[in-house]
Amino acid sequence: MMIVAGQSQSTYFLEEEVPNTERSHTLSVLVDNEPGVLARVIGLFSGRGYNIESLTVSEVEHEKHLSRITVVTTGRPPVISQIMHQLGRLVPVHKVVNLTWSGESIERELALVKVGGRGELRDEALRLAQAFNARTVDATLESYVFEITGTPSDIDRFVSIMKECGLVEVARTGLAALARGRAGIVDSPAS
């Protein structure tokens, strides 16, 4: 399902198409890159009592001043479609796409993971990092910082293993996501 500024929309067919259970949804939102746009989106979620599991935002088309917000939220289909419509009526929002509904998508996140310690644990941390295809981006005699990219659950797994190896802290970027296939958010037709 997709909501496009300036196009007629309806939502009533949704209930037949998707199971009515609560689950996590990844929404891609194309917005004008203007001051306050992120505050509008976040304010909408907090003001209407929707939750945000993850949110990332960055300018994606400099000349057109367009940013892309990727937001992960949880709810039953009617709530998700309400969230999409509420996002769709914000003036700076161009398009809202539910990647979870529109088919397969690719989801990636990057994390920096710092572990500390000496001796056997330190060696173990490095071996595990290699097993997870994490890059070592900083090393001292008593610490490493690894960079890992993967799905959020890959990163969860890596972080939870690193807890056994002297985990100090983690910084995560939040989710970046795209639909598979040729069509992009800008030029894909409304469904």
């Binding site: 909501i3 007629s8 929309q9 309806s10 939502t11 009533y12 209930e15 009617p78 479609s81 309400q82 419509h85 509420q86 769709g88 009526r89």
Partner: peptide
């Protein structure tokens, strides 16, 4: 005229946005 009004409180059978 507001798509977010539709199915917000009551599920409807035929929504017409405009």
């Amino acid at each position: 005229i507001d798509p977010s009004s539709i199915n917000k409180n009551v599920l409807v059978d035929v929504p017409i946005v405009g």
